[in-house]
């Protein structure tokens, strides 16, 4: 993908803040959390690839092991799972701009941090997100009351199910990747103590 194509992803946050579309996208909790959020993260991820090597290296110097970056991503994803924050984003334009900017930047930071993080650190952060998302997803379904004043209770239940499915899918793909990597290294490390690569 060329740099210009990647920069096209900058349009995603702008389009999502365009009032008519914003209203349509945020009218349902399911769309808001399971379409808008992933779209913003993905857009940020793509744009990160358009950064030149110098900018990436400069960020990497501040982002040792990807630790602060992954922490930032965790903070952003946690904040927007809080019903009060989500409600405020649907009502206040400035909060929504903050939401859009933070999720988009979290996508960028995620792309730049994952490759820097060791498999252990990666697994820690991904595992943490999967657990948290499943927990919140169960909560969304199990609570008899509405958590967001802006959303219907049926919508909340569907969102909860969607979050569990998404978290399970991400967790499985992740686990498969780790398993493949582990198997590859196990095959290479054939017990002779001589490691080839």
């Amino acid at each position: 993908m060329s740099r210009h194509q990647r920069l096209l992803a900058l349009l995603v946050p702008a389009i999502l803040l365009w009032p008519p579309l914003r209203e349509a996208a945020e009218a349902s909790m399911f769309r808001h959390m399971l379409v808008v959020f992933p779209a913003l993260l993905a857009a940020g991820w793509f744009v990160a690839g358009a950064l030149n090597a110098r900018a990436q290296a400069a960020f990497a110097r501040w982002n040792g092991m990807g630790l602060p970056g992954l922490l930032y991503v965790t903070v952003v994803l946690t904040i927007w799972m809080i019903p009060n924050a989500l409600d405020l984003a649907t009502v206040n334009w400035d909060v929504d701009v903050a939401k859009t900017a933070s999720l988009f930047s979290a996508g960028m930071v995620l792309a730049l941090s994952l490759r820097q993080a060791s498999p252990v650190l990666q697994t820690f952060f991904v595992g943490n997100w999967v657990t948290m998302t499943i927990f919140v997803g169960v909560l969304f379904q199990a609570l008899p009351t509405r958590l967001c004043n802006a959303y219907l209770v049926g919508d909340q239940v569907r969102t909860g199910i969607g979050m569990i499915v998404l978290a399970a899918a991400v967790g499985s793909v992740w686990a498969y990747g780790i398993w493949r990597r582990w198997r590859a290294s196990a095959v290479v490390d054939d017990g002779t103590g001589v490691q080839s690569s």
Binding site: I79, I82, P83, N84, A85, D87, L88, L147, C148, N149
Partner: peptide
């Protein structure tokens, strides 16, 4: 900010 000073999860 999101929890109104660690007191609320819902609006």
């Amino acid at each position: 900010w999101a929890t109104a000073g660690f007191t609320a999860l819902t609006s």
